[in-house]
Amino acid sequence: MNPVLRPRSLFIALGVLLALAFFLSLALGPVSLHLLDSLQALLRLVGVPVGDDTLEQAQLIIGQIRMPRTLLGLSVGAVLALCGVAMQGLFRNPLADPGLIGVSSGAALGAAIAIVGGSLFGGIPEAFAPYLLSVFAFAGGLGVTALVYRLGRRDGQTSVATMLLAGIALTALAGAVIGLFTYLADDATLRTLTFWNLGSLNGASYARLWPLLLVTFAVALWLPRRAKALNALLLGESEARHLGFPVERVKRELVFCTALGVGAAVAAAGMIGFIGLVVPHLVRLLVGPDHRVLLPASALAGASLLLFADLIARLLLAPAELPIGIVTALIGAPFFIYLLLRGRA
């Protein structure tokens, strides 16, 4: 099958899609705002003097609640998709997932330690709780990934196959420890833990947003520098070496970027599955596997898709809210099965 779109048409389409997702994410929510009011409030937020003071409420809702949430969703979606591309390139497998190297399970473990451990030691002061949780999740993701990478190394070379197996083993181990914490948890803690595992953009604030934004920028700037190396890596590691690329260094950078990116995303929004797996795959179907196009296009598509998933999560049962991990899994899993069947045909 040949790619169906030229890169330029894809970027235009994705740009429009993202702008739409961004605006809808600001305009829609449990408090219904008129679309025109939303637009005017948004303009006022960036300093354009339009409308009048009746827009104050809309301005407050958009500026303080929906804007951080939207930026969080955008950032999480983009970074998960970018890391998915990196991992599919590293493992030379279009069906690889960023979770393969243990970063998601490590982050889940860190979160479980923070949530359950915190409650066992008499509870974390309310003000620190979200930060502590994020820090533990991030550290857990980084720690387990470092261990996976370490296990994959022998004689100065990193075996991708060994890393894959080490990732599976450590994911199982982390799962067991999380199970243990789940067993120890009381009902209220258990609820927190469960909801965290389902992922949510709820409760986004600027204070929790900036570390993730920083990481997303870093990853989004760094990975495209390795686009050519990623293309060569798809031929095979020795082929990439013969084409002059420092393969060991590239692999290290890919693992580090993914640990950082997925770690920060999970720390900020909990476990949100399938974005990293499905988005790069979808984009590849549209424009082909060239990483020079695939990386930026996946970032745009991932951001848009996550914002739309969040809209569904917010609006489907409004004013109640569905965890976004459920929405992405409900859309992502069937799509993944479709890809498997399609690949076999």
Binding site: M1, N2, P3, R92, N93, P94, L234, L235, G236, S238, E239, R284, G288, P289, D290
Partner: peptide, 11 residues
């Protein structure tokens, strides 16, 4: 090399 493992739809 003897064989290649390229598994992506490059042109």
């Amino acid at each position: 090399p003897q064989s290649s493992t390229l598994n992506f739809a490059f042109k």
